[in-house]
Design a binder for these strands. Structure first.
Length: 562
RNA sequence: UGGGGUGUAGCCAAGUGGUAAGGCAGCGGCCUUUGGAGCCGCCAUUCGCAGGUUCGAAUCCUGCCUCCCCAGCCA
C-alpha cells in the first residue's frame, strides 16, 4: 500500500502552529474510552486521528481507560477495547493508563480546591440540585451549603471518603458561577458517593470523581499536549481549563473538539448498540451487521480498510452523515487487491453437459487473481455435471442480458463456452436442470478467431462441490438516519431483511482449506469464513458485494445481490 | 427567549484577500474470460442569505437564516 500525505485538517494546523511557535515541544495525544461497551467505527475515527497524529508528529499516543463510573464498567469491556485497538493496527507501547490509577492524586487535588476555597461539600439531594441549577434561560441559585468553611468542607469530604455517609448524601462541588449561561459552570459536581465496587480498585473507594474533573487532570498527569474529543464537549472546555488553572498540575493540555462520525443506515451510540444487543435484535456485540469493530472484524472488513476510510472522510467540525457506501468502497479497494478469487454458487442450478463424458474429470488451471500473478493459480475440477447460479439463466432474457438462455452461449470461467440446448422441468413446472453442450475448441479459455462471447459466468463441479451456509448482510435499518427520526423508537426502523441465510450453497473444493483471510467469490463479492463453521458445517459471511453495473442499470437480479 | 458550535457539489472536504484542491457517488468513453478490476474524460462563474469594504472576497465587516449540542450525583 502506498503511503499518501495525510489530509489537511484544522487539528493538524493547530499542532503545526504550536510546534512552530514553540508553544509545544512535542505531541502527546490519547484515546480515552470508558470501558462500558464495545468500540465502534466512530471510535475508530478517534483512534486513527489520535494515533495518526502521534505518528506523524513523532510523538506518542496513550490508551487510557476513562474509568470513573464503576456502575457501568468491567474488565470484559476494557480487554475488548485493547483487543480492538490492536486489531485496528495501533500500538500504545508502554502507555496504557487508567484514570482509576489516579484516584489518590485526583483526591489530593480535590482537597487543594477545598483549601483554596474553590470547592465545597454540598448536601442538597440530586433533585434539589436540579432545581437549584436553573434552566437554559434562567440562572441557577447558590446552594445553602455553598458557604461552609474550609475546615468543615475538608472534614466532610474526608468523611465522605471514609464512607461515613450514604450514597447521595453529599457531593463535592466546585465554586464557580451558578448564574453562568454555560450550565457546566454552575458549580459542577466533582465527586459523588457511590458504594459500588470498581472493577480495578475494588472497594478501596466509595467516592468517585466525575468526568469533568478527572479528565483534564488525567491529561495533565500524562503530559498530554492535545486532548482531542468530540463536539459535545465544547461547552465543557471552559471547565476543562478551569481545573487546569486551579489545580497544581504538572502540564497544561489543550482540549480540541471535532465532529463525531455518523454513518447511514446504522446507529452509533453505545446506548443504542447496547439496546440492540441486550434486546436480542442482533446476535451479539460481534454481529456482522453492527458498526462495532468486533462486528466488522467478523464480517471480514480488513482493518486497513477502516483506516483508509477514516483518512478519507476527513476531520472537521460540521455534523456529517457519511454514506455507508464510502466505507464499503474502502473495503472493496483493499480486498480487490488482496483477496484470492474462487468460485462459489449461492443458488445452484444443475447443468448437465451432454457432450462431456460422465466418468471424466478435467482439471483446469485457474489464476487466483486476474491482476496479480504473484497470487498464483489453482486447479479446479470440471465434470459432466456442474452447478451455475440460478440468476445466470433466464428463459426469456431482456435486451442487454448476456448470460445464459435457451439456445444462447456463455463462457464458463476458465473452462469452456457453454451452449444451452434444453430446459428440463420437474412436475411443478419448475426448472430442474439445463441440458447443455460445450465447444471443445474453447477448452481452457481458448478463443478461436471470430468467437465473441459477451458473458462469463462462474460454476462449480457438482460431484466435487462443498456444501456451505452463506450469510448475506444488508443495512441494519430501513432509513438513512435511524437515530434522527424524532418521536420514533429506532428499533421500529430495523430492516427485517438485514440477514439472509442461504443453505445448500456450493463451493469449489479448494475452499475447504480456508480458515482466515478473505476470498472473492467471483462475480458475487468478498467472503470470509465465519467462526460458526465446524468440520461438518462450513459457514461463510459475505463481507461486501462487488459493484454491479447490471443491477445498477436496473437489470433484474433475483436476490444474489440482495 | 440563554450559552456554545456549524453552513463550500448528491455525500465528505481543502481553502486563512489574488480569481474554487482531492475523495466518494454520478455521467460518457476505452479495455476486459468477473456486467468485477483497470484506464481516460466530464461533473461548483460560485462558497447559507442580504448588504458593505476592496482594484480584487468563500476568505474582512454588518445584519439575518439553518442545523447540531447543553438543564446526569453519565462519559
Amino acid at each position: 500500500m502506498n503511503e499518501t500525505a495525510p489530509a489537511a485538517n484544522f487539528i493538524r494546523t493547530i499542532i503545526t502552529d504550536d510546534l512552530q511557535s514553540g508553544r509545544r515541544q512535542q505531541v502527546v495525544t490519547r484515546f480515552p474510552p470508558e470501558p462500558n461497551g464495545y468500540l465502534h467505527i466512530g471510535h475508530a475515527k478517534s483512534i486513527c486521528l489520535n494515533f495518526g497524529l502521534a505518528t506523524d508528529f513523532a510523538g506518542r499516543c496513550h490508551l487510557r481507560m476513562d474509568d470513573t463510573n464503576p456502575e457501568k464498567e468491567s474488565v470484559e469491556y476494557a480487554e475488548a477495547i485493547k483487543e480492538a485497538v490492536r486489531w485496528l493496527g495501533f500500538d500504545w507501547g508502554e502507555h496504557l493508563f487508567y484514570a482509576s490509577d489516579y484516584y489518590e492524586q485526583l483526591y489530593q487535588w480535590a482537597e487543594e480546591l477545598i483549601r483554596t476555597g474553590k470547592a465545597y461539600v454540598d448536601s442538597l439531594s440530586a433533585e434539589e440540585v436540579r432545581q437549584y441549577r436553573g434552566t437554559l434561560t434562567e440562572p441557577g441559585r447558590e446552594s445553602p451549603y455553598r458557604s461552609r468553611s474550609v475546615a468543615e468542607n475538608l472534614d466532610l469530604f474526608r468523611r465522605m471518603r471514609r464512607g461515613e455517609f450514604a450514597d447521595g448524601a453529599h457531593t463535592l462541588r466546585a465554586i464557580i458561577d451558578v448564574t453562568s449561561p454555560n450550565l457546566n459552570l454552575r458549580d459542577p459536581v466533582l465527586y459523588r458517593i457511590q458504594r459500588v465496587p470498581h472493577y480495578r480498585t475494588g472497594d478501596a473507594w466509595c467516592i468517585y470523581p466525575m468526568y469533568d474533573f478527572a479528565h483534564p487532570l488525567s491529561d495533565a498527569i500524562e503530559g498530554i499536549t492535545h486532548s482531542i474529543c468530540t463536539l459535545e464537549f465544547e461547552d465543557h472546555r471552559p471547565l476543562y481549563d478551569w481545573f487546569i488553572a486551579n489545580c497544581s498540575v504538572p502540564a497544561r493540555p489543550q482540549q480540541i473538539e471535532f465532529a463525531r462520525l455518523n454513518l447511514t443506515y446504522t446507529v452509533m451510540s453505545k446506548r443504542k448498540l447496547l439496546e440492540l444487543v441486550t434486546g436480542r435484535h442482533v446476535g451479539g456485540w460481534d454481529d456482522p451487521r453492527l458498526p462495532t469493530l468486533v462486528g466488522m472484524r467478523r464480517r471480514g472488513y480488513p482493518p486497513a480498510a477502516i483506516r483508509t476510510f477514516c483518512e478519507r472522510i476527513g476531520v472537521g467540525k460540521t455534523d456529517s452523515l457519511i454514506d455507508m457506501g464510502v466505507l464499503e468502497e474502502c473495503v472493496r479497494d483493499d480486498l480487490n487487491r488482496s483477496a484470492p478469487r474462487a468460485m462459489a454458487v449461492l443458488r445452484p442450478l444443475k447443468v448437465v453437459v451432454e457432450n462431456f463424458p460422465a466418468d471424466e474429470v478435467e482439471q483446469f488451471e485457474v489464476a487466483n487473481h486476474p491482476g496479480d500473478p504473484a497470487l498464483g493459480s489453482r486447479k479446479v475440477p470440471f465434470t459432466r455435471e456442474i452447478f451455475i447460479e440460478q440468476d445466470d439463466f433466464l428463459e426469456t432474457p431482456p435486451k442487454g442480458f448476456f448470460r445464459l438462455f435457451p439456445g444462447g452461449e456463455v463462457r464458463l470461467r476458465g473452462a469452456y463456452i457453454l451452449r444451452c440446448e434444453q430446459v428440463v422441468r420437474d412436475g411443478d413446472g419448475q426448472i430442474s436442470e439445463l441440458r447443455c453442450s460445450i465447444d471443445p475448441a474453447t477448452r481452457g479459455g481458448a478463443n478461436p478467431p471470430g468467437r465473441k462471447i459477451k458473458g462469463t459466468i462462474h460454476w462449480v463441479s457438482a460431484p466435487h462441490a462443498l456444501e456451505a451456509e452463506v450469510r448475506l448482510y444488508d443495512r441494519l435499518f430501513t432509513v438513512a438516519n435511524p437515530g434522527g427520526e424524532k418521536g420514533r423508537d429506532f428499533k421500529e426502523l430495523l430492516n427485517p431483511d438485514s440477514l439472509q441465510v442461504l443453505t445448500g450453497c456450493r463451493l469449489e473444493p479448494g475452499l475447504a482449506a480456508v480458515d482466515g483471510g478473505s476470498r472473492q467469490f467471483e462475480r458475487l463479492g468478498y467472503f470470509c469464513r465465519d467462526q460458526d463453521s465446524t468440520a461438518e458445517r462450513l459457514v461463510f459471511n459475505r463481507t461486501v458485494t462487488l459493484r454491479d453495473s447490471w443491477v445498477a442499470k436496473g437489470g433484474s437480479d433475483s436476490g444474489v445481490a440482495g
